[in-house]
């Protein structure tokens, strides 16, 4: 299947992107405890509460500033995460959404190809900022396969992200705080890859 023969078709407007962000916020509220538990094993036990703080602020900002197009929704969400989360996940998730949003530009609605290209640009910005690659046991282990599978369908992207997150279990962390553990990071699922899978699952849910 080539990029032009995509199964994820249709047009995605401001309401779709607002729905996506709302579904991410709901998922983060629901899964915060699990994310923090995963982080306790190989990090510092706060990934869930940090994202909770960030996406609550995103929900407020989106309601107050009423962005007018898909790009503005994601840029505002990203900027809000950078200003409220801190840690590594603030700049990384903030950059992911901000750069994706900037790539979408000022269009009133975008098609599946534009969304995919935007996300790919966002994911590449995350890789550059974090200096990391697939296999380092990070967000990228869920995000990169998800963007690749997006050409097929939203459901396939969500499955790929979930599989990617699960596949971090046997990996040794090379980036972030988990890397200090050396071999002791093996056998644990990466919290960042897990929350990235939530982000993509929410995207599929918004499209359903």
């Amino acid at each position: 299947m080539t990029d032009s023969e995509t199964a994820a078709t249709g047009a995605y407007d401001t309401a779709f992107f607002l729905r996506w962000m709302a579904l991410v916020a709901t998922a983060v509220e629901r899964e915060a405890g699990r994310l923090t538990e995963l982080d306790a094993a190989i990090g510092d036990a706060d990934h869930g509460s940090n994202l909770q703080r960030g996406f609550r602020a995103v929900t407020t900002a989106l309601a107050e500033e009423a962005p007018k197009n898909p790009g503005q929704v994601l840029v505002l969400a990203g900027r809000t995460l950078i200003s409220t989360v801190g840690g590594a996940s603030g700049p990384l998730y903030g950059t992911l959404l901000r750069r994706t949003g900037k790539t979408l530009g000022e269009a009133e609605q975008v098609d599946a190809g534009q969304l995919r290209d935007g996300l790919r640009t966002g994911v590449e910005a995350v890789a550059k900022l974090g200096g990391s690659a697939v296999g380092d046991k990070t967000m990228l282990d869920a995000l990169v396969p998800a963007v690749d599978a997006l050409a097929e369908s939203f459901g396939a992207a969500s499955d790929a992200a979930e599989q990617g997150a699960l596949a971090t279990v046997p990996l040794q962390a090379r980036k972030g705080r988990a890397s200090y553990l050396g071999e002791r990071s093996i056998g644990h699922q990466d919290p960042g890859a897990t929350s990235s899978a939530l982000l993509i699952a929410a995207l599929a849910e918004a499209a359903a």
Binding site: D44, D46, S83, G86
Partner: peptide, 11 residues
């Protein structure tokens, strides 16, 4: 000061 064990934000 950031949140507990979390870097502060650029602002």
């Amino acid at each position: 000061p950031g949140e507990v064990f979390t870097s502060p934000v650029p602002d």
